[in-house]
Simulated scan of single mutants.
Amino acid sequence: MSIKPYPLQFKAEIKERIWGGRALEDFGLELPPGAIGEGWMISDHPNGITRVANGPLQGLGLDQIREAYGSEWFGTRGSSASNGRFPLLIKLLDCNDDLSVQVHPTDDYEDLPEGESGKTEMWYILDAKPGAKIIYGLKEHMDAQTMTVAIEEGRIMDTLHEVNVKAGDAFYIPAGTVHALCSGVVVAEIQQNSDTTYRLFDYDRPGLDGKLRELHIEDSLRVIAYDGAGASRMDTTNMAPGQWLTIASSPYFLVEKGLIQEKEAAAATKDSFVILMIADGEGHLRWEDGELTVRAGECFLLPATLGGYEMYGALTVLRCSVPAS
């Protein structure tokens, strides 16, 4: 029996992290005990494959759906060129403490782990405590030699650019950009389907096992884009209802933010799936064969063959698709 396409919601893969907390409970996630740093909301990565939580495909992993339906559901641009998997990984992050200072490689880095792609990503700040900040790139006139000396002398923090953040800020972080989320923020992250991170600095703190976490200085210094990789930031707090604003555009994903106060009609296309992440509010998602109640913290994967759909209610939505190459 063929399954008619419908919006897929997944059970989040929960990740305990030394820097995590409990804030993801406020976004509807059921958390086990511990310091929970990440909820992988939509994932086809071997380190955490999400399973469908609704409808006829309930219980199936995203990898199984990919294998069964392929480009019919995900679109002609719906697989990674490097490994054939679903191309994106969607997360919620609770930064109760500072994350490590880190950098990600590009697709063409020669020492990528087998089966991995590079990792370009974007952040949308869902919540931020007063005074919250992130590390976002290097200060001017930094090169590999300057960074090496600073690391050897314990002065790496002197090389980093810090910025204050608030809810509604969006950051585009191409591979090669040194970055770190700091304490006091909850973030929606949209990224390439990769789990490769090179740590430059981790505050000399023990991990969950009581041991210092591994640093990757050599790899980091090789993949940093010292002249910049095209990182950008945007304040989206002054948007008007009914407006859609592009907040991140890359070869891997296009992310728009929309404010819905009544009703918004749209349609999926055969080129790409659509991911809807509800950043705030509550409302409904309706398509030809059904309707779902949606609320802040939930994510939905709309198949490329879904056709027309509507969202209505009082909602702040992040809408993501794969752009034409």
Rank of each mutant, 00 (worst) to 15 (best):
F10R: 02
F10N: 04
R22F: 04
E25N: 04
D26K: 15
F27G: 05
L29W: 03
L29T: 04
E30R: 08
L31M: 03
L31R: 01
G39M: 02
P46M: 03
I49G: 05
A53H: 06
N54I: 08
G59M: 04
G61C: 04
Q64S: 15
R66C: 12
S71K: 15
E72N: 10
W73N: 03
G75H: 00
P87F: 02
P87L: 02
L93M: 13
C95G: 06
H104M: 09
Y109V: 10
K119P: 07
T120N: 05
T120A: 05
M122R: 12
G131V: 01
K133V: 01
I134Q: 12
I135V: 15
G137R: 00
H141M: 09
H141S: 11
A144F: 01
Q145Y: 11
V149A: 12
E153L: 14
R155Q: 11
M157N: 13
E162S: 13
K166M: 14
A175V: 05
G176L: 08
T177Y: 02
C182I: 00
S183Y: 06
E189D: 09
I190P: 02
Q191I: 07
F201N: 01
D202R: 00
G210A: 06
K211S: 11
R213F: 11
G228C: 10
A229H: 10
A231D: 11
T237F: 05
A240T: 14
Q243V: 13
W244Q: 14
T246Y: 08
Y252L: 07
L254I: 00
L259M: 12
K263T: 08
D271M: 10
I275H: 07
E282F: 02
R286K: 14
L302Y: 03
G308W: 05
E310H: 05
Y312T: 04
L315W: 03
T316C: 13
V317L: 11
V322D: 03
